[in-house]
Simulated assay, not measured.
Amino acid sequence: MKNITIADVAKHAKVSKSTVSQFLNKRFDYMSEKTKKKIEETIKELNYQPNIVARSLKQKATFTVGVVVANILHTFSTQIIRAMEDAFHEQGYQIIVCNADDEPEKEKKYIEMLLAKQVDGIMIFPTGCNLDLYERMKRQQFPVVFIDRTIKDLNIATVMLDNQMAAKLAVSQFVKNGRKRIALITTSIIRNISPRVERLEGFKNALADHGLPVNKAYLKSASADQLPAVLEEMFNLPAPPDALLAGNDIVLYEVLRFMKKRNLTIPGDAAVIGIDDVPFASFFTPPISTVAQPVAEMAEKAVELLLFQIKNKEDREFEDIFRYKPSLIERDSD
């Protein structure tokens, strides 16, 4: 079968090759609706497929970006990747998603693989342990945006939640409903992963604002497999907590499973709020209150920041951290 070229499309549609090229690149400023329709119909009739390799060589771009996510099991990760994919697709870009499993070495391999494939830019949910690699990309002015997590003094454009406010919203809700023994459980903070550290800090500040003491027995961080034991220890205290703030969706899942196993009622035995809205929260019994992130807005900003760097090769210094306000979704668990 003969490969259909731009020249074939142009000849069949009775327009110039440059007009077809403008159509393919979505430059319609000076193109009539009649011409657009004619080219579109010709492309379908001839089953024309653009030569992506030739296009990349000509424009010195692959129209592909990488997304290296720390842990794709988090609901927020899948939600924002889905929203970013839509936004990139609208701009003619494809994405390659890589899951690092919170392992720095795996993250490093994925970033190096994406660089070797000459992607135009990379979104990273950083593990925080590949500073040399992050710094090298910044020195080389390679387009990079961090998502969900920031790294101090690195000065890379970052989109993330106001994590302190997220914790404060939950604590204020607990206090409003008369709770005083408020606990926070989060996944491990060994590597000082910024959202977890910031939520812990916001939690402590919120307790102080409401005149409540910080009880270390009610502050726990652990790996996912250790969470059941942490919960067991906490609820065996002489005065167990009467409110639990789950630092993320993985913790929330373990909290709900533990309470069901122990036949503890929500909110009777303990109120529960989770940071990050999850699909099952609204139909769990009782429906679970959550602190939600504005995923669509965050995805839109992240894509905007990366495309700005890709398209402005001489002006890639974009070092701000863009924080977004969370919102409390009140249900029946607090």
Rank of each mutant, 00 (worst) to 15 (best):
F203N: 00
T64L: 03
N99L: 10
S18K: 14
Q59W: 07
D332K: 10
T42D: 08
A271N: 11
I72F: 14
A243Q: 02
S188I: 13
A87Y: 10
K260T: 14
L252R: 05
D102G: 10
I95S: 06
Q79C: 14
A281E: 03
K11F: 08
Y134G: 11
P126T: 02
Q293L: 04
M31L: 11
H210P: 06
K216G: 15
F125Y: 15
F280M: 13
T187V: 04
E90Y: 10
A157M: 01
R27Q: 15
Y218N: 06
D249L: 01
V144W: 02
T158N: 00
E319N: 09
P195H: 12
G121V: 01
R323M: 08
A61K: 15
P195W: 10
A166Q: 01
F142A: 05
L252D: 02
P104G: 12
T127K: 03
D148E: 07
E198M: 13
M31P: 03
N236Y: 06
D86P: 09
I111R: 04
D209W: 11
K176T: 05
Q309V: 03
V15G: 15
M298P: 00
P294S: 13
L237A: 11
P326E: 08
K117W: 07
E254C: 06
A183F: 09
Y134S: 02
N163E: 08
T150V: 12
A170F: 00
V20A: 08
N99I: 04
K176I: 00
E105F: 01
L207T: 13
K14F: 13
F318V: 11
L237I: 14
T158I: 05
P104T: 14
H210I: 14
V65H: 02
Q309N: 06
S21F: 15
M123I: 02
K313M: 03
V251H: 00
T35P: 02
P126R: 02
I147N: 00
I151F: 04
V255Q: 01
R27L: 10
T62W: 07
T64Y: 06
K38T: 12
I288M: 01
F322L: 08
K180E: 12
I182R: 05
I52D: 14
K152H: 08
V251N: 02
Y93T: 13
K117A: 11
A222R: 01
F284P: 08
F308D: 00
E107L: 02
G211L: 12
K11P: 04
R27P: 13
K152L: 04
M234W: 11
M1Y: 12
N236K: 07
V214R: 01
E45M: 14
